[in-house]
């Protein structure tokens, strides 16, 4: 990651950690492009792994493990390490071993946009497995694009309850990701 890009993304993440949702959204969208480029390159001969699944699982991991990034450090190596882990883990779940050296190619990668997606992603399966309340809340905020407040009004819940359900729902999705039964 070029130094100026790393600085900009680190700054966004610092704001995000201070609770700035808009900065966090921008950060995640940029990171998605970078992770997508890595995943596509690594999954060319992919063994049936959809790069966009890797992107989504990596974003979830970044979100749930963001307390393992130190604000004083570069964010690029942290993001790449998580991406690498998620790719290796996806292969492992399919019973394959891979070794991945992302560092050598990373500086040349440009951020890439998503392709039109098949609807049956891993994450959709994980979402469908949630309990009723969590599923409603996560769907409302993600797919329907509603805010916390709108979701609370819509579902007749308190905002704090919506936040809790969202947080637990995201945790549950991450735990179920890729574990089809």
């Amino acid at each position: 990651m070029r130094p100026e890009v790393d600085q900009r993304l680190s700054e966004l993440m610092r704001k995000a950690l201070a609770g700035d949702e808009a900065a966090y959204g921008t950060f995640l969208r940029e990171i998605a492009g970078v992770v997508r480029a890595v995943a596509r390159r690594r999954l060319n001969s992919g063994g049936g792994i959809d790069p966009e699944d890797i992107v989504q699982e990596t974003l979830l991991a970044i979100h749930l493990k963001r307390h393992t990034w130190r604000a004083s450090e570069k964010i690029g190596p942290w993001v790449y390490a998580i991406t690498r882990y998620k790719i290796v883990d996806a292969y492992r779940r399919r019973g394959q071993q891979v070794t991945i050296d992302i560092d050598t190619i990373i500086d040349t990668l440009e951020s890439e946009p998503p392709k039109d997606a098949p609807s049956e992603r891993e994450i959709t399966l994980a979402l469908e497995g949630l309990t009723g309340g969590q599923k409603q809340v996560v769907k409302s905020i993600s797919v329907d694009g509603r805010s916390i407040r709108e979701t609370a009004q819509n579902l007749g819940m308190k905002e704090t309850a919506v936040r809790v359900a969202l947080h637990r729902g995201l945790n549950a999705i991450a735990a179920r990701f890729g574990k089809r039964t």
Binding site: L127, S142, I148
Partner: peptide, 13 residues
């Protein structure tokens, strides 16, 4: 769920 939709949920959290 599309990636942008997932990001909506993550940002809200």
């Amino acid at each position: 769920m599309k990636t942008d939709e997932l990001i909506n949920a993550l940002a809200a959290d």
